[in-house]
Every structure is written in structure tokens, then in C-alpha cells.
Amino acid sequence: MADGFKIDQRHGKSRVRVSRVWRRINGGDLIVEWNVDVSLYSDCLPAFTSGDNSAIVATDSIKNTVYVKAKECGEVISMEGFAILLARHFSSFYPQVSAAEVRIVEKPWERVVVDGRPHTHGFKLGTEMHTTEVTVKKCGALSLSSGIQKLSLLKTTQSGFEGFVRDQYTLLPETRERMVATEVMSSWRYSFQHISQVPSKPFCFTQRFQDVKKIMADTFFGSSDMGVYSPSVQNTLYLMAKAVLNKYSDIASIHLRMPNLHFLPLKLSSKENPDMVKFADDVYLPIDEPHGTIEATLSRMQSRM
């Protein structure tokens, strides 16, 4: 309370960009590039009410701590592991800080392949973004989630949309044959509730990220020869989420957001010539605005999310 008002406050540093290179790991260099946000929940109310800055952790100190902790990681560490390391440091090092929240987005540098062999020190920029959000309280309580952004998926067939609500404003025809494309944004929350519950090596969050991405893509596409029919983006989203939870018992919940990026079959016509050119499921107009938006969270019954 301050002067009869309730105040919720925190402070930190955003968009701290840091890159770490580990040399000669399994025959080649390894690089990561992270964009780090840190927020501290701390007892520094006098800074707001009376200009007393004695309890504020300077955001310059927060930024420099990110660099120092990256340097101290002599062994390869996952993005989630680094976020836990930072949050644990800030929540324990400063007496006035009750909790620290760390968000990181990883730039997707991928090793290049030259003449069929992985290059020892050459990388190219990929597309899918790996994300994490970690909160550690002074008592060690933990909230940990990982995610993916910009996972672009497309099928040229094996998709339809029928039986939906029709009213006086509906123009969309029903179909059992259409293209379907989306850019998946997903986050999944781990069941670990205390830093002591986080498995040590050989558990690897980076590999888990790759595995979850593969499960979602495999469920979307189906087998390489026959595929799998999608009656709606909603159904496909549910099957993707369910496949992840069925595979990994330590994931408590998963959220997916899947915009329906339209590919509209083209037909050229005019008033004088209504059948100028008819395309037979081969020429389309890509449309990403406006687009349908479908999202849902699938949780285990005991999940708090």
C-alpha cells in the first residue's frame, strides 16, 4: 500500500542481446544468440513513493549480469537452463528481490551442410524461434515453459471444411478438398514446481524442443505417402496438442495458436466472359490478411494452467 493505493511493481532490463560460442564441441563450434528480458519483483516501494533508490537493482547491473553469466557457462547450456540460472541468481543474490522472471527468444542459427557434411564453423539463419519463460521465487518455487514461434506448415491437399454454421452472411462454400497452411505459435508448461525437481544431465531442453516440434509437424502432415485428412484446423490443433501430452508426461499443458492462412483458388472472369480461365486446383491467391485464428490450451486434469 502507498498513500491509500495498491501498487504492483517490478523493474528489469529488456532486449539484452547476447551470443555465446562454445569451441570444438563434438568436432565443431556451437553458437547461440539469445534475446533476454529480465523482470525483478522486489521490495523497492520507496523508489516510487519518495524517490529513495537505495533498494533498486540498476538495470545496467542486470544487463551486465547476463553477459557475465553467459561467460561463466563453460559447458554448453540450454536456453531454459540459462534462464533458470539467471532467475535463480537474481532471486537469491539480492535480499530485496522476492522473485525473478526471465524470458528468452533464441535466434535460429543452424549449422550448414557443405558437400553432404556438417560444416565445423558455418551457420545459416533458420526460421522457427525457440522461446522460454522462467520464474524463480526466493524459496525456489519454479514456473517453467518453453515454446516455438514461426513454425510454418502447409499441405496442398488432404484438408476440408464442412458442416459449419451457415447464416445470411455466409459465403464460404463447403469443401473436402483445399490447401491448408498455418504459422504455429505454441508454448508448453513443464510440471516442475521447484528448481530441485529439474532433471540434471542427460535431460536436455534443447532436444525436447526439437522433439516437440517434430511431433507437431508429423501429426499435421501424417505419413509421407498418404498423409492424414484434416476436417478442420481445430481438429488438427487438438491432435497435435494431444500427441505432445501423450508423449511427454513432464509437460503439464500446451497452448497452440494456429492462424488459417488462406490459399484461394483462382478463377478469371468478366461480365462478358464469365469463364475466361478456369484453374483446376493448381493456381491460388495466397492471403494472410484477414485470416482465421484458432487457438486452444490442452491441459492434464491436475494442471494449473
Rank of each mutant, 00 (worst) to 15 (best):
I251V: 15
D218C: 07
Y169Q: 04
S200T: 13
F205L: 05
S187C: 12
Y169M: 06
D218G: 02
M240I: 04
S230N: 06
F192V: 05
S224I: 12
K247Y: 07
A217Q: 05
M240Q: 15
D218E: 14
T236M: 14
P202K: 10
R208C: 02
L172D: 02
D167G: 07
S187M: 11
Q158M: 12
F220H: 08
S223L: 09
D167K: 07
S232D: 06
V180S: 07
Q207W: 07
G222H: 04
T170Q: 04
F164T: 01
T175Q: 02
A181S: 15
L171C: 12
L245Q: 09
F164A: 05
G222W: 01
V228I: 15
S223D: 15
S200L: 13
K242T: 07
T236F: 08
F221L: 13
L172M: 13
N246W: 06
F221M: 15
V244L: 12
D167P: 05
S196K: 12
S186A: 15
G227C: 03
S200N: 14
K242I: 03
S230D: 00
V233A: 14
E174C: 00
E162G: 01
S191Y: 04
M240A: 04
S232I: 07
S196R: 14
E174L: 02
F192P: 00
L237R: 08
S223Q: 10
T157C: 12
V244H: 08
D250R: 08
S191G: 10
Y238I: 05
Y229N: 07
K201E: 13
K213F: 00
F205D: 06
K214Y: 06
S232H: 07
Y248Q: 10
S249P: 12
